[in-house]
Design a protein around this nucleic acid. Structure first.
Length: 852
DNA sequence: AGCTTGCATGTAACG
DNA sequence: GTTACATGCAAGCTG
């Protein structure tokens, strides 16, 4: 079926081909001129014939084949008054009524702008397109060259005016009437919505229109650009949601009363809705709209066939650059038709390997499937590799849920993750599906989305594999500015990337590492600068509340000297040397030797290390594999060499001063409590660093007084216990002493008392405190804990909660211990199961008080 | 036990 | 209120 190329400068009569691919829904087709390369695909989706295997029907009058769902077919068929459809020629010959002159700018043929629309359109592209249109129609009409552009418009108008009014419909059998009405309404509705879609899209895409005409080759892209320019020339402010009764309102079709009341021109004026709504789209819309100003992204190319009832949501409109198109097409003889795109959800990118397809997209661009088993589909990636997916659906709420199964290899091959975007395109001729992608700029989805939204910076680094060229021909417009994503509610922007935190779950190994370092990150939290906390009292406890989120400070190491004195060490960001700091110093995220105002001799990177590397490594536990080893060996984060202030407290509470004085970095506690883990968000653990500088050794606050009082009780109890031990010494074969480096354990009781590691007590090794142990069995242990010094206890308690330590992931224990040691057992109620020392202390204190 | 599969359900967007 | 869709979940399957 030879056609004449619509390209005026080509007008080849022999090189057109109808291309009918399965990506072309409902008998759609694409036209390709092999001479000039112009490609025109069916752009007006005809829902009337949707589902028909063939897009062709027979004219009821002459039997001529009528195509639907294509550029031409809109004008190749008419709904006949007596039912059915007829070819345009027959319909015209039957037409007896005068054509209502609708001068509306509403263009039934939005893909081919109408020069006759009196809206002050610039003729910039009209000449080209009108010529194309003319020749196209002349040829698609079977060589009837008598039909010029006006004729086409007349036909359009005729088609519009052919909407059967009530009288006419009333003569039909009910079935036909219904069908006819439905058909007309459907078409009109889809045209209307398609138009509004186009308006919205064009408002955005206009910013990408090339300033110069693209020359004789006018492909779909150029057509859309031209359209964009044209449609953005619409006067603004006319609401679209005031439908033209002739065009879209059912009342206009069925009731028909209002049709003639309004002058057609006014109808047209009314119909126009130029100012699109702010895009209620997913995050990529907004972000990419911003990016579009610099990335030449072709925003929102209208989905060709995905119209009608299942018109695509804006978030699925493909945005693609020329480079990407070219990369996909690979050669000049093929045309890439972007179909739709989708931001990968967590489940899409997960291991299940199921990519949920938007229903409208699936039904528009994928082959129709009747059984849930679906069909295998071969989709080519941008590298040319072909992937076979299973395209299928599930019944869902009287609807369907379309999925592509088996996408995991492809997703992984493209190294995509949740938040990235896959773009489905079609290569014409051939109808081959292509899957491209666009990576989110940030592996963290939220960051990427919000950052791009906030500052308008490019959020996409690659698309379809590569898009490195900044925009050269794009430019912001007023329309574009109107579309700024700032107008988009955050709630809607966040769609598709997981408004729920659970959508952000990551299950990769990387994520595991992130989880492990979460505790470390928590330790770096600092109160927001220049923000005064609000002190709230919760069960007689003071808690600081900050309106601003905490900030990250520089990670430091805490060590304990032989004297029990705590030290803080920080590593210079410049020279990586470790500098000793006062223990109560909070460092900013960036810190160098120059900032070391506490030690002038080492306030320069040129100053040598205070300790030898070996000493430092031993002291601070720094080494290459420390972190990895920690992750690898201890999923519970129990192995940590450096005692922190709170760790020292815990250690001291168990082992007494000797444990601290030993300056054994391996003295450690455990965080292995089931309810009080790293990242715990309970009121205790979220308490910001509140203790800083508050509790001096001379402090007489209630907390410190309570600590002292309780410690006194502990000491008394210890003496009492020692007396008991002395009494029973003769009965026990071996008794552990404080001086015994390797106490001989004679019973499980004593083993527990002395916290000597048993066979299975990894967490309790080295005298650590196992918070998981049964509190009821800890009594004696706590009694033994009375061996610590008051100063050590107070000193340890003085450490701010979040400064307590050294990045060993034990932040969860610290606050609990500190508060509990300070006598605030209420903060770790038994039902919370914190198993805190303090609660044990409390118990024993009671006992002791009673005993005393 | 881990994986796959099919369906159910909750939620957000849309009309 | 309806629809679309992300994801949970249980039953079945497989090694």
């Amino acid at each position: 079926m030879a056609k004449i190329c619509m390209n005026e400068t080509c007008q080849s009569t022999t090189t057109f081909e109808w291309k009918k691919g399965w990506g072309l829904k409902s008998g759609g087709f694409a036209i390709l001129c092999y001479k000039c390369g112009s490609s025109y695909e069916n752009s007006v989706y005809c829902e009337t014939f949707h589902g028909k295997e063939s897009g062709w029907r027979d004219c009821k009058l002459c039997g001529k084949r009528i195509h639907c769902g294509c550029i031409a077919s809109k004008y190749l068929h008419e709904y006949l008054d007596f039912g059915g459809v007829g070819c345009i020629s027959c319909a015209k010959s039957l037409e007896t009524r005068p054509i209502r002159p609708i001068q509306s700018s509403y263009n039934l043929f939005p893909q081919i702008p109408n020069d006759d629309v009196p809206n002050g359109f610039s003729p910039l592209t009209a000449n080209n397109i009108s010529g194309l249109r003319s020749s196209f129609f002349e040829n698609t009409m079977g060589g009837n060259n008598t039909m010029g552009g006006n004729s086409i418009d007349q036909r359009k108008l005729m088609k519009l005016s052919k909407s059967p009014d009530t009288k006419e419909v009333a003569h039909f059998p009910q079935s036909q009437r219904t069908e006819c009405n439905a058909s007309n309404e459907k078409i009109k509705r889809e045209e209307m919505t398609g138009f509004s879609d186009l308006l919205q899209r064009s408002a955005r895409s206009s910013i990408f229109a090339k300033p110069e005409n693209s020359g004789p080759i006018l492909g779909p892209k150029d057509m859309y650009e031209s359209l964009s320019r044209r449609f953005t020339n619409f006067p603004l402010g006319t609401p679209l949601d005031t439908p033209n009764p002739l065009l879209s309102s059912p009342s206009g079709v069925v009731e028909g009363r209002e049709q003639n009341k309004t002058p057609p021109f006014q109808q047209g004026q009314r119909t126009r809705h130029i100012l699109p709504k702010p895009p209620k789209t997913g995050p990529t819309i907004g972000s990419e709209a911003n990016n579009a100003t610099v990335s030449q992204t072709r925003v929102a190319r209208p989905p060709a066939e995905g119209r009608g009832r299942h018109q695509l949501l804006p978030r699925y409109w493909p945005r693609i650059t020329d480079q990407e198109l070219q990369q996909i097409s690979g050669d000049l003889n093929s045309t890439v038709v972007p179909l739709f795109e989708k931001v990968l959800s967590a489940s899409d990118a997960g291991r299940i390997g199921r990519l949920v397809l938007p229903k409208a997209c699936a039904e528009a661009y994928f082959p129709p499937i009747s059984s849930s088993e679906g069909l295998p589909i071969i989709i080519q990636d941008v590298k040319g590799k072909e992937w076979t997916f299973q395209f299928r659906f599930w019944p869902n709420n009287n609807s369907r849920m379309y999925v592509l199964e088996g996408v995991t290899p492809c997703i992984q091959n493209m190294q995509l993750q949740a938040g990235d975007t896959v773009i489905f395109s079609r290569i014409d001729p051939g109808g081959k599906l292509v899957i491209g992608f666009r990576k989110s700029s940030n592996s963290d989805m939220q960051d990427s989305q919000t950052s791009s939204l906030n500052n308008g910076a490019p959020s996409e680094e690659t698309s379809h594999g590569a898009n490195e060229n900044p925009a050269t021909d794009g430019g912001g417009t007023n329309e574009e500015s109107l579309q700024r994503p700032l107008l988009i509610p955050e709630k809607k922007r966040s769609r598709n990337i997981g408004s729920k935190s659970k959508r952000l779950r990551m299950h990769s190994e990387d994520a595991m590492e992130l989880r492990l370092t979460w505790a470390e990150a928590q330790e770096l939290l600092r109160p927001p600068p220049s923000v005064r906390p609000t002190i709230v009292m919760i069960e007689d406890q003071e808690f600081e509340e900050y309106d601003e989120p905490p900030v990250f400070g520089k990670r430091t190491m805490f060590t304990a000297r032989a004297s029990g004195e705590q030290e803080q060490w920080a590593q210079c960001d410049s020279c990586s040397k470790w500098r000793r700091l006062p223990v109560d110093v909070l460092l900013p995220p960036k810190w160098t030797c120059v900032d070391n105002v506490w030690d002038s001799s080492r306030s320069s990177c040129s100053a040598p290390d205070e300790k030898s590397p070996k000493e430092l490594e031993s002291l601070l536990g720094i080494g290459k594999e420390v972190k990895k080893r920690r992750i690898r060996e201890s999923p519970t984060l129990t192995e940590e060499p450096e005692p922190s202030g709170l760790d020292a407290l815990a250690t001291a509470a168990v082992l007494g001063d000797d444990a601290v004085d030993a300056e054994d970095p391996s003295a450690e506690t455990t965080t292995k409590h089931p309810r009080h883990r790293s990242g715990c968000t309970c009121i205790v653990c979220i308490q910001p660093p509140s203790g800083k500088g508050r509790h001096k050794s001379t402090c007489i606050c209630n907390v410190c007084l309570t600590v002292r009082r309780r410690f006194k009780t502990l000491m008394l109890r210890r003496k009492k216990r020692e007396a008991e031990i002395a009494d029973t010494r003769g009965k026990e074969p071996v008794l552990p002493t404080e001086d015994d480096s390797e106490p001989v354990i004679t019973s499980e009781e004593d083993r527990r008392r002395n916290r000597v590691p048993n066979d299975g007590g990894g967490e309790s090794s080295n005298g650590g405190l196992d918070l998981n142990c049964d509190p009821n069995r800890e009594d004696d242990m706590v009694v033994e804990a009375a061996g610590l010094s008051m100063t050590g206890l107070i000193h340890a308690a003085n450490f701010p909660v979040h400064l307590k330590e050294n990045g060993n992931g034990k932040s969860d224990v610290g606050p609990c211990l500190l508060l509990q040691a300070a006598g605030e057992s209420e903060d770790c109620p038994p039902d919370e199961g914190h198993g805190c020392v303090s609660s044990l202390v409390e118990e024993k204190e009671k006992d002791g008080d009673e005993g005393n």
